[in-house]
Design a protein around this nucleic acid. Sequence first.
DNA 1: AATAATATCTACTAATTAGTAGCGGAATTT
DNA 2: AAATTCCGCTACTAATTAGTAGATATTATT
Lengths: 202, 202
Amino acid sequence: MSIFSKLSFKDQAFKLRENAILDATTSILGSKGYDLMTMDDVANAVGISKPSLYKHFKSKEDLVGEALIRLIDGAVDFLAQLDGQLKPIEKLTDLLEWALRVRLEGGMPFLPSTSAHVRDMLMRNLKYITRVLKLNGQIEKLVKDAQQSGDLNPDLPSDVILFSYYSRTCDPAVEYLQKFSKMDNEQIVKHMLQVCLSGISA
Amino acid sequence: MSIFSKLSFKDQAFKLRENAILDATTSILGSKGYDLMTMDDVANAVGISKPSLYKHFKSKEDLVGEALIRLIDGAVDFLAQLDGQLKPIEKLTDLLEWALRVRLEGGMPFLPSTSAHVRDMLMRNLKYITRVLKLNGQIEKLVKDAQQSGDLNPDLPSDVILFSYYSRTCDPAVEYLQKFSKMDNEQIVKHMLQVCLSGISA
DNA sequence: AATAATATCTACTAATTAGTAGCGGAATTT
DNA sequence: AAATTCCGCTACTAATTAGTAGATATTATT
């Protein structure tokens, strides 16, 4: 075995554990949220000790930032992999559907706008901001194109559509339906999409 | 001055300060959220010391519970004071409009579904649960009546409408619009209502 | 004016948790 | 096999903050 492959093997193991950490973080964030998630929680969930955790991420903020970046990257990848022929409105719908499924399967809300603490923290995370702006640029363009082509309401300011769209990815109605209704995930996704697009009125 | 009026005067002063405490709590909760709000914050905002604060509320959970109960009561009162002739859909719209205005004017999100901690805490607060169930009963009836009369989509499960309606009261789009768009509060309310009822599609 | 009663504050305790120092043991090299 | 390196862990520190004890001021009563 050459030195290179050995190093690369170590690196691979390291990367693998890093992913396990991010998975655990994502899941714990999804259930308890930022403030209640302790670094001990994460370490225990992965089966390592806290100092080992800090070998990978230099702080709690850093860890959560990376977990969110991975999520954003997932969204960007999802968009990139979509059939280019699709209409903007179809891309937006598919992306929202994907985001809702991620959440229903135990992931964290896509947009953790919920806590002021987390929001401030993220605003200071340049790496995160960069990714978000990239994704935002793409979505904003899709929204405007969809308005142009008459698939999204052209009379609404695109800001309103954009922020409302984002908000649907972290809509608490999802959790309430999951907890209190007998619907399965597919039905929840279907109804959330319909409400997002057409509202609740007849 | 009789003993009775003295006592009642003291009580009045006590009640007055209690309201000031709840006002401060509401405002701080609105800006920082539960986890970042400290009891010292509240005491300082009111201009009293922490032990005095604890003369009114026996714990942080209790304090926040009472603030939320006052908010729920506000909603119940608002509904009660509405013209009985209004159609259910009109009542629902007016209530949502009221809730959005409360928030835009520095109040806290109507439904603090955001934090798992807060939600769990409230679930253990019988007094709060009782009020919420009362309000929920009224809103649920309005939703079903509005579906019956064809003003709300009768094909959607009423659960979906109900939870989506609640979610609009704490929709983060409101804060984003307030922070990043040039709209005034009236426009924000108008657009949020439209999106809630008719969605974002054309 | 002296005393009693009450209200409010300063200064503490206790518990939680982010982050770290430094030890012990396994793998790797000579 | 001995020496060295490196990894992960136990056990700590420091900081924050909910909640309280007990001193202090203020008001009411005689």
